[in-house]
Design a protein around this nucleic acid. Sequence first.
DNA 1: TTTTCAATATACCGAATGGTATATTATAGA
DNA 2: TCTATAATATACCATTCGGTATATTGAAAA
Lengths: 188, 188
Amino acid sequence: MTTREQLLEQALELFRREGYENTGVQKIVDAVGVEKPTLYHYFGSKRGLLDTLLATYFDPFWGPLQTAADHKGDVPYQLEQITLAYFKFAREHLNFYQWYLSIIPAPVESDTGKAVRPILDKQWKLLNRLFKDAAEFHGNMRGRDARYTYTFLGIINTTITSAMFDLVSLNEESAYITSGQFMHGIFS
Amino acid sequence: MTTREQLLEQALELFRREGYENTGVQKIVDAVGVEKPTLYHYFGSKRGLLDTLLATYFDPFWGPLQTAADHKGDVPYQLEQITLAYFKFAREHLNFYQWYLSIIPAPVESDTGKAVRPILDKQWKLLNRLFKDAAEFHGNMRGRDARYTYTFLGIINTTITSAMFDLVSLNEESAYITSGQFMHGIFS
DNA sequence: TTTTCAATATACCGAATGGTATATTATAGA
DNA sequence: TCTATAATATACCATTCGGTATATTGAAAA
């Protein structure tokens, strides 16, 4: 593993266990066994390291997420596939996803808040488009697309958090239940 | 308003807007217009200020929450009342609840993590007792009480977060829908 | 072999951090 | 009025923070 990869790995581990703000740059380079200028050579700043870390994991996720959302016209199937895509992503990078969940509510003015916002926006736009399209078929959804977008993501992440305590497994059956529970909220 | 109250107020505002770790003690006392030893006179440490802040808001909440959970035997009614209790609490202290939500996923080793854990445990025990009791009446719930406890809190907090973006209002109808959506997840 | 550039280390910077020893002021009770 | 105590300020502490100027090493290209 390259020095760059080790820095990313140790940064994630420290950010997750002690928080971004509580993790000094010194602690990260100590964990890898290099000196500070090495880190600054690769990432430019602590914030650059943060951005790189998020991009490294999320970049390969956009494709599968878009694919899952593509089956236009069949909302229940779309929601189930999207739920599955999130479950797969979280299952394969459980530590990363745990840390990612922890920085979602970070203040807008903080480093973590600024770094995570574009990622949240991208997810939001992709899913909101789905609910806006669906509103053309289901009249009673009209005007509620923003609310549904938000709640849908919330239920997915609640379920994933639950899985981290071994309370549920992130398999197909669980995805069916999760998206079904959300659908019930829509059409009731 | 006393100096002590002003310190608590400004601390909440700064913690919420910039995060606990990004808020120096100096910034808080500057916002109030006093000097550092004054803050240390009242709270002993930055961590003491954090604990006091959480206790100040949560202490008056335990009574109503317990009351809402007391109607043993009628699970749907209990869940609706509990949801309403949370909605009321969040509605009356929206800024505080927003900050509280942001520190829930804080690392266990961090100050915020250590401070918020007892509060989470208390909520968890109170609700878990409800689901354990309910399992005696509804056999198909047995063994799932931990999962239900977690998911129920997750859906409540997702809805409250949604309310912060003006996507939904925290009224009785909303509480009925929220608890109903969760009930559907249980008995399906 | 020489040149070039990426990768790493040594040693340092000013600023901010949480916290405190000590002195002063204001207030309330005897 | 005197005393005790709560409340506040001045001035300081060692440590850590993110970041960098500069030098050295190593490897690949010319």
